[in-house]
Amino acid sequence: MSTRFSRRQFLKLGALIAGGMATLGAARSRTFDELARAVGDTAARLPLFRANAQTTGELIGADGEPMTHAPAAPAATNQRRYVMVIDLAKCDGCKECTTACSAMHFVPPGQEWIKVFENRDNKVAGAYWFPRPCMQCDNTPCAKVCPVGATFKREDGIVLIDQERCIGCRYCIAACPYASRYFNWAEPPHTSEELAQKYSVELNYPHRKGVVEKCIFCPALAREGKIPACASACRMNAIYFGDQVEDVVTNHAGETVSFTQLIREKGGFRYMEDLGTEPRVWYLPPRDRVYPAPKG
């Protein structure tokens, strides 16, 4: 067990013991539920835990009583705005995010939907690791130029590609300043696991020849309130994912923080802000690094 005893991990554990309900799949209402249950199980020490009429009116827990809990308001996709925060101070360039992403999406060889660069803005500041997913820009240069509307922006902030419509003109690749888009130059190698899935724009697989692909913020996971594969795989806990509407981001270790507060207090910035693309991926400066800087 890591030395970071985060609440979330413990909550998860407690919930597993108490009810066995908090599997990853039931994540949407998990946190509050777990909190309530955990409280309930220690009710011998904590005699009363209750809400009252002035708040929600629901009895959420009392000594020995069965609990009900307030739903954590499952939000429709169009009420969300997903956002990612990458703490460059924590990224040690291990590229496990890339590996996990490629495994999860069966990413064809040669593509790195989240790619870790060794950036060096100037000689004085030195080099730092720079993971680059798709920025999911709000002012999408790519979707703007797509001649057939195959790539599009969803209200929840995610830019998707319909590979059943894409004509493979690669104009979106030309338009993307972040080089986040990839083209299937040949028929990608398939696995049976991949082919077993029915194609959906939220999966982007089974992959096919002659169309454009990119990072899509794992919408299928986000739908369940889970963080994307890259964030889950980041052992440095550098990648935060969350919802701007709920004003929350969380990382693999379960450090759940207010998004606006995090950006404000740590001087968050966006890559190539001056291009006006309004990315949905934010970076925290590589300050007080917890890893040795790249040699470059």
């Binding site: 169009n78 709000d138 902030g157 194609y199 959906s200």
Partner: peptide, 25 residues
């Protein structure tokens, strides 16, 4: 305010396939 490109798309709770022959953008 949702996005400056003015893209609006409501999607169902189920994973979505682009509607046949229509514009999403």
């Amino acid at each position: 305010d949702l996005n400056t490109a003015g893209v609006r798309l409501s999607i169902d709770e189920e994973p979505l396939l682009a509607p046949e022959g229509s514009l999403i953008t």
